[in-house]
């Protein structure tokens, strides 16, 4: 994968494509007069940067989850059940293991508090996050 720039007049886009031909195909799909220019090679996110990003994402996911509990007026008893249910997931979230969090949430059984709507919301957030790498 390398980065290419497709441009025309005052518009341009920089994106990574597998080949110049793939970039040219996108340019052609936009209409006539779009040019393609090679820029630089794609470099994957360094491990240290990725870890920081994953931990940050998980931290915010936990906050969002807790806010949703408050919004749903979860009682202390329900909160204890949730904690027992999510203990493993929470452990993985605290170390930034996003794919493990994703796995456990996908396999979590829904209930009155952890509804299907909430489950879909978190799965979607994680999918969007992982999709960028």
């Amino acid at each position: 994968m390398d980065y290419y720039k497709i441009s025309k007049d005052g518009w341009s886009v920089v994106e990574k494509y597998s080949t110049e031909a793939a970039a040219q195909a996108v340019a052609d799909s936009l209409g006539a007069g779009y040019t393609v220019e090679y820029l630089y090679p794609y470099v994957s996110t360094p491990p240290a940067e990725r870890l920081g990003s994953d931990i940050d994402f998980c931290k915010n996911l936990i906050t969002l989850f807790l806010q949703d509990n408050r919004i749903a007026n979860v009682t202390a008893q329900q909160g204890e059940s949730l904690m027992a249910k999510f203990a493993t997931t929470l452990n993985f979230a605290q170390v930034g293991a996003v794919t493990s969090v994703d796995y456990h949430i996908k396999n979590m059984v829904t209930d009155d508090v952890f509804t299907q709507e909430r489950k879909d919301k978190y799965i979607n957030l994680i999918a969007n996050y992982l999709n960028q790498f």
């Binding site: 005052g10 518009w11 994106e15």
Partner: peptide, 11 residues
């Protein structure tokens, strides 16, 4: 914005 992915800029 155009229907493409990536970092697009409009002058």
């Amino acid at each position: 914005f155009a229907a493409v992915s990536g970092m697009q800029a409009i002058a």
